[in-house]
């Protein structure tokens, strides 16, 4: 919002609402296509033919063993997510018991619930606030495709319309075992990622114009 000198900014709810509406409409218009999954490593590891150094291995090990999920709990899947956190399924066995309320301290987003267009800008913003590297798990059919609400007028058909998703866990809601399995899949995926970039791919400040 532009700041107008002559205006009293204490409470103009209408303006806030109109502004929010514009953001939603814009996002809606811009996200009609699905964003492709960041990497297809999970199945096609041979194709990419990555050489992992031992430094890579150490970094990947550290990353995958202490994933901290951000709280993104819009709907019913959140109940199962809490159960996963809870005493019986005990996610802390995988080094990730702490749900971070702040996206800046998290590197994993488990999207537990239906996403509506009104919510979409906020989720996108939370995703953008997370520091790299970051991963997203779409939990539940709503997260994958909109689920039974897909034909609703306010429902985003899948989180991958607005943010890239790494792992999908089907189910409505998925059982906690499925969620843990999905997290393990993500850990496998991280283990294969190349954490240390190649030297010649790094930007070289000495050579102008060249990468």
């Amino acid at each position: 919002m532009e700041i107008d000198e002559n205006k009293d900014y204490i409470y103009d709810a209408h303006e806030l609402d109109v502004h929010e509406g514009q953001i939603i409409e814009k996002l809606k218009a811009n996200s009609q296509k699905s964003i492709p999954d960041p990497d297809g490593w999970l199945d096609e590891d041979i194709k990419r033919n990555i050489v992992l150094t031992s430094l890579d291995w150490v970094i990947d090990w550290a990353r995958r063993s202490s994933l901290w999920p951000v709280a993104c709990f819009p709907a019913c899947c959140a109940i199962e997510m809490m159960a996963v956190e809870g005493p019986r399924f005990d996610l802390s066995r995988f080094g990730m018991e702490i749900l971070r309320a702040s996206p800046r301290q998290a590197d994993l987003m488990i999207t537990a619930g239906t996403l509506t267009w009104k919510m979409a800008p906020n989720v996108q913003r939370i995703y953008n606030q997370m520091p790299d590297p970051k991963w997203v798990i779409a939990m539940g059919t709503c997260g994958i495709s909109g689920g039974i609400f897909r034909s609703g007028y306010n429902v985003v058909p899948g989180y991958n319309k607005i943010i890239p998703v790494d792992v999908y866990i089907p189910g409505c809601p998925p059982r906690p075992e499925a969620v843990i399995y999905g997290i393990q899949m993500l850990q496998k995926k991280i283990a294969k990622s190349k954490a240390v970039p190649d030297l010649n791919e790094l930007p070289n400040p000495l050579k102008k114009g060249k990468k």
Binding site: P74, A75, G113, T114, T116, K118, M119, N122, F149, G152, Y153, N154, V155
Partner: peptide
């Protein structure tokens, strides 16, 4: 309205 899924419709 952040979870308005339109169940009634």
């Amino acid at each position: 309205g952040y979870l308005h899924r339109g169940i009634e419709k």
